[in-house]
Design a protein around this nucleic acid. Structure first.
Lengths: 197, 197
DNA sequence: ACCTGAACACCGTTCAAGT
DNA sequence: ACCTGAACACCGTTCAAGT
């Protein structure tokens, strides 16, 4: 599915190894989370440990390739919601729901996202920042309607969204309450003076 | 300060080692968080690794001794606030503030607290549950005044409090916004029909 | 070019040997 | 009764040796 075309000048075996590593990583990270053993990934890929490091010099580089498609979709989704014929606060709530759902796909992902935001050297930094900015634009649009409190910014929003994703991942009993906690968060974001049903 | 009295029948050197381990643990966990290396703790305590395990058979057993005093204070504080001459939602907000402050003392503590809640075998389980119940009682009292929404329970509250503590720990820039995010959380907890200033 | 796996410096946990 | 540290099975990361 991903990166099917070989890179120009890349040897066929190298390209195949790269694909194998990514497939194995999807499995292992899916089971053990973003802190999964890289040795396990190499083993499952049937590849030497050095080969894994050659293709992905850091853990974040591997995660970035694994996650970029999903991140880009979320960034695009924010743009679509911004242009959609939808109440602005509704659009914001929809995006937060999509974000927390995706951030919950891998255990440990919210922590990785927050860590990466503070580390410009991380391979995940750029796409993570793009997501925060996209969410920030949705937030500001909603604030302009007066239905969302003006004293929060994109950093707050991204932090809260990750906090919600994190807590849902800590216990199944909490995961079942995710939507309700998200609604509670939206109420907290609502402007004090805005009328509520 | 802690456990100064020797236990009956305990050898003097054993008691001294236990104290040394706890002092070292306070330092090391303070620096590296709840996932700190136990080897580091033993080294700093000037004690063999087996001695550490003899006194504290699990990581949670060590953390429990390190944290119990603080946990008990929070549980007691909830009782005091329940009896205080204070608006119920004010009392709840005060307790949440105290909780998040303490949960932020050690990096990784919110995750340990949530994990421990789902593991009855953990040495931290009982005192953690007691804290959640104490917070739950404060919550119900506030709900009875009609100023706090009725569709949340102690589990929600504890989860949200830990989520807030967690996110504040992920970046210094977020830690600086903790009080504002707590206020936002309180707004989310407020009853939709309750008048707000 | 690329791959491999040994090597190094760490973990957590257990347990035989000491006092 | 208690303490010690070697032993075992793991990590992440690097790099000499191979093809």
């Amino acid at each position: 599915m991903r990166d099917e075309a070989a890179r120009p000048g890349q040897r066929a075996d190298a390209h195949r190894n790269r694909e194998r590593i990514l497939e194995a990583a999807a499995e292992v990270v899916g089971e053990d989370g973003t802190q999964a053993s890289l040795r396990d990934v190499a083993r499952k890929a049937g590849v030497g440990l050095g080969t894994l490091y050659r293709h992905f010099p850091t853990r974040d580089a591997l995660l970035e390739t694994l996650l970029r498609t999903g991140f880009d979709q979320l960034t695009d989704e924010a743009g679509r919601l911004l242009d959609a014929d939808l109440p602005r606060d509704r659009a914001l709530a929809d995006w937060l729901s999509a974000f927390t759902e995706r951030a919950g796909t891998f255990q440990g992902l919210p922590a990785s996202l927050m860590a990466t935001l503070g580390d410009p050297e991380s391979a995940l930094h750029a796409s993570c920042l793009a997501m925060r900015e996209a969410g920030g634009r949705l937030l500001r649009a909603a604030q302009e309607t007066g239905r969302i409190r003006p004293d929060v910014d994109g950093t707050d929003l991204f932090a809260l969204a990750n906090a919600l994703s994190w807590i849902a991942d800590q216990a199944p009993s909490i995961a079942a309450r995710r939507d309700r906690l998200l609604a509670l968060l939206m109420d907290g974001l609502a402007h004090p003076d805005a009328g509520r049903a």
